[in-house]
């Protein structure tokens, strides 16, 4: 059952999320909601020099949206901002590839488990929710804006 969408890795991250909970200090924060289904996530990013020292998050929603946030935390904490944006770009391309993009495990790690989600247009938004919030929060951290931004992901 559920071969393509609900990979074990996704269920693992959903049931045992990594790095969940909002932490201080942080340089930027963003809150994104998916108005069609009510998923929501808050992401905080802490940056020291050019390194992302922490990505913390909290939210509620379906297994895909919450597991994706856990994977995001794991992949991006400790990397440089530049590398993080490269990973974010690769993940977004995979999600928007309608199942035609071959996932790169070296770049995406556990994120490749989401390859199947790309075939379900209704769920792509769920998988990308935390990544869009991450992008916003990081931009805010870099410009020193800091405060929460409210965004609806459509």
């Amino acid at each position: 059952m559920s071969d393509s969408l609900y990979q074990e890795i996704i269920l693992d991250h959903y049931k045992h999320p990594h790095g969940r909970g909002l932490r201080e200090p942080f340089g930027g924060e963003a809150h994104h909601v998916n108005p069609t289904c009510g998923d929501e996530i808050t992401v905080r990013v802490a940056i020291d020099g050019s390194t992302i020292t922490d990505v913390s998050y909290d939210g509620q929603g379906c297994s895909i949206s919450q597991a994706s946030a856990s994977v995001l935390h794991e992949l991006l904490t400790g990397t440089t901002v530049e590398d993080a944006f490269a990973v974010e770009k690769t993940f977004t391309e995979l999600m928007q590839g309608r199942g035609q993009v071959e996932p790169d495990e070296d770049v995406l790690g556990d994120g490749i488990a989401f390859a199947g989600v790309a075939k379900y247009p209704a769920r792509v938004k769920c998988a990308l929710l935390s990544w869009m919030a991450f992008k916003d929060a990081t931009a805010r951290a870099l410009t020193g804006a800091g405060q929460t931004s409210e965004e609806e992901t459509r």
Binding site: S2, Y6, C37, D39, G61, C62, I64, R123, C126
Partner: peptide, 18 residues
């Protein structure tokens, strides 16, 4: 989450709204 309920039901051919 209802999304997950709906998706798993769909995989069994059961169409509901979430």
């Amino acid at each position: 989450h209802p999304h997950d309920v709906g998706q798993l039901l769909d995989e069994q051919g059961v169409a509901v709204r979430v």
